[in-house]
Computed example of a mutant assay.
Amino acid sequence: MADHIHTPNDGRGQRDVFVNGNRIDNVVWADARGGVVWFCPAPVRVAKRKDIIYARRLRGTVEVVARG
């Protein structure tokens, strides 16, 4: 996988994801180069008329920082 793509299970440890300087929780997928983040807003819920978890997309300046 490319170095600019981040997922919770990619084996690179825990990280914090920031979009335009705001920390985002429950991130499913982040592309630091493309400026796109998919996340599940709290509380996590099921999408209407579908059996999938509701997720949203954010765009902006994405920064991924390793937790110390």
Rank of each mutant, 00 (worst) to 15 (best):
G60M: 01
A30N: 01
R49K: 10
G11D: 04
V28F: 06
V27C: 01
N9D: 15
V65K: 13
M1C: 14
D31P: 00
T61K: 15
K48F: 08
V44D: 10
C40H: 14
G21E: 12
D31E: 04
T61M: 09
V17R: 04
G68Q: 12
R45E: 13
G11P: 02
R67C: 07
Y54C: 10
I5E: 04
A42L: 10
N20Y: 06
D16L: 07
G60H: 06
R12F: 05
D3L: 03
R57Y: 03
D10M: 03
V64W: 00
F18H: 04
A47W: 05
C40L: 07
L58W: 06
N20V: 08
W29S: 07
R15W: 10
P41H: 11
G13M: 08
M1H: 14
R67I: 11
R45Y: 10
D16Y: 07
D25F: 09
D51T: 15
G34E: 02
D3R: 00
R67P: 00
A2L: 12
A66M: 10
G21S: 07
A32T: 14
V65T: 09
A66E: 14
R67Y: 04
V28P: 05
N26E: 12
Q14V: 07
P41Y: 06
T61P: 04
D3W: 00
V65D: 02
I5R: 06
V27F: 05
A55D: 07
R33M: 05
Y54H: 15
V17G: 04
R12V: 06
R57S: 09
V19A: 03
G11E: 01
G68Y: 04
H4P: 02
V65H: 06
V37Y: 01
R56A: 10
R15Q: 15
I5M: 08
G21I: 09
P41C: 11
R23P: 06
A32Q: 13
V37R: 02
T61V: 14
A42Y: 14
K48D: 15
W29G: 04
G34M: 02
V27Y: 03
P43N: 03
D51I: 11
H4L: 00
R15M: 11
C40W: 04
L58M: 13
V37C: 01
I52R: 11
D3E: 07
G13H: 09
R45A: 11
R23F: 02
R45H: 12
V44S: 15
V36F: 05
R56G: 06
N22E: 13
H4R: 05
V17C: 08
K48E: 15
R33K: 15
F39H: 14
V17D: 02
I52L: 12
A66G: 08
